[in-house]
Amino acid sequence: MKIEVLYPDVCCLYGDKANMRYFRLCVPQAEVFDTPLSETPRFLTEDVDMITLGSCTESNQERILARLRPHMERIRELADRGTVFLLTGNSFEIFGRAIRHPDGSESEGLGLFDFTAEQELTDDGLLKRFNSLFLGTFGEMEIVGYTSRFSHAVGISEGEALFKVVKGLGSAPGAGFEGVRKNNVFGTYLLGPFLVQNPAFVKYLLGLLGVDEPKLAFEDAIQKAYEVRLAELKKDIVFDD
């Protein structure tokens, strides 16, 4: 199994690195390649089973777009073929149609999805931040997490959404769903240790990657942390601010 972690030197905000750190412990036999921003992605010259990208700053979104735009066809080919992509935080915006800035200008996205990420400003001219806890579902699975971002993804149809929202902020205010999915491309605004917080989703990904009877590292501990969080999120607590 080959996993490519794209640009971990800049896509590492908010504990996002934890996902692959934990994932490696669950599949010690996997070959994991870290590709820094200055290097050519490995997926261009060889097949990989999984590609991950984490949260980054807005300026790094632009740098990554500049590096990946020339390879849009290859990315589309891999997505159509069923390669697993895990895109957390604002990194999934890179795969949409465009990122629209507060001044009305747009950065062209990779176009794997048709949504537009839209940023807004506060009254005193700063990028507006949106923070929210999240409780949702993925099939029968209960998903927990957190989003913190400067933008919303507009134009996602329910059919291509990843999670259903139970509580918290979805892809945009009022949206009943969160993130995007196409084949095995999973994009979500949930950030940080998303996998670490969702042990069942780790098992699901391991299954997609062909691992029979997946075993989780420190299974009792990850399960206990998940159950405590799930119970708390189901209580009447403050989700947004």
Binding site: G15, R21, G192, E232, I237
Partner: peptide, 12 residues
């Protein structure tokens, strides 16, 4: 007190 702390930071 009335919410749930996001603990992504502890992984950093």
């Amino acid at each position: 007190k009335d919410s749930h702390e996001f603990i992504g930071w502890i992984w950093d």
